Computed example of a mutant assay.
Amino acid sequence: MNKFIIEKSFWDIFPEANVGVLILKNVNNMRETSNNIKKLLEESNKEAKKHLTEEQFSHNPVIAVWREAYQKFKTKKGVRSSIEALLKRVEKGSGISSINPLVDIYNSASLKYGVPCGAEDIETFEGDLILGVTEGNDEFYALGDEANSPTLEGEICYRDDKGAVCRCFNWRDGQRTMITENTKKAYVVIEYVNAEKNKDIEKALEMIAYYAEKELGAEKSALKILNINENTIDLI
């Protein structure tokens, strides 16, 4: 049975981090995005404005905490956390548009609770999924790219036996493991660099599980918040 494992190299940098994991099975993501999900995403785009109370975008706590975190490991120049990318679009007034049902659901949770949220297709993994500091040169094809963009030495990333799954902590997923209409089993993850958002992480994951079950017929196989003392979960 494959596992998700958080390596010591990650905890050496973020010893107080918490990583929430939700595993969904029997997902039917081939459906058209329902009106309920569209409404959820629309409402979450509006609600996300509560995270943007400071005049200067980078001074908002939900942004500042990740700007600081990204100073602690090697990254590609100019990359930002996924929650910053979402909230930047909200600030500009464009908001987040529909992609596919499951992605819309987890983007809604991300916007509502102000936490970075990502998901991958478990059935595309080769071996265990690892979060840690990489030695570099892990194969990675970003969404929409035709050229390999390998990881850097000292970069935090999610990776499996074939290469990188998500680069620069929670910056960007790759083509190989992305959620598609054919996804049946999904790994959903929310990270935070300390315990301040644990309740929000749990609420966000429960929200995703609820709508995935209601709208996509999915089943919640596991939900767990990992930390330095409990850093592994089976990808059941």
Rank of each mutant, 00 (worst) to 15 (best):
F4C: 13
F4V: 10
W11R: 03
I23T: 04
L24A: 15
V27S: 12
N29T: 14
T33N: 02
I37T: 10
K38D: 01
L41H: 04
N45M: 04
K46G: 00
L52H: 12
E55S: 10
F57V: 12
S58N: 15
S58Y: 14
V62R: 05
A64Y: 03
Y70C: 01
K72E: 08
F73K: 00
F73N: 00
K74A: 14
G78H: 15
I83Y: 10
L87F: 05
E91N: 11
I96M: 04
S98N: 06
N100L: 13
N100Y: 01
N107P: 05
S110Q: 10
Y113M: 00
Y113G: 01
C117L: 03
G118R: 00
G118I: 00
T124Y: 07
E126L: 12
G127V: 09
T134R: 09
N137T: 01
N137K: 04
D138P: 00
E139D: 08
L143A: 02
E146K: 14
N148I: 01
L152N: 00
E153R: 06
C157E: 11
C157M: 14
Y158E: 03
R159L: 06
G163I: 11
C166L: 10
F169E: 01
W171H: 15
Q175F: 07
Q175R: 13
I179A: 08
I179W: 08
T183L: 09
T183C: 13
Y187S: 03
V188G: 03
V189E: 08
I190Q: 09
E196P: 02
I201K: 09
I201H: 07
A204E: 12
I208L: 13
A218F: 11
E219S: 11
I225H: 06
I225W: 03
N227E: 12
I228W: 08
I233D: 06
D234K: 15
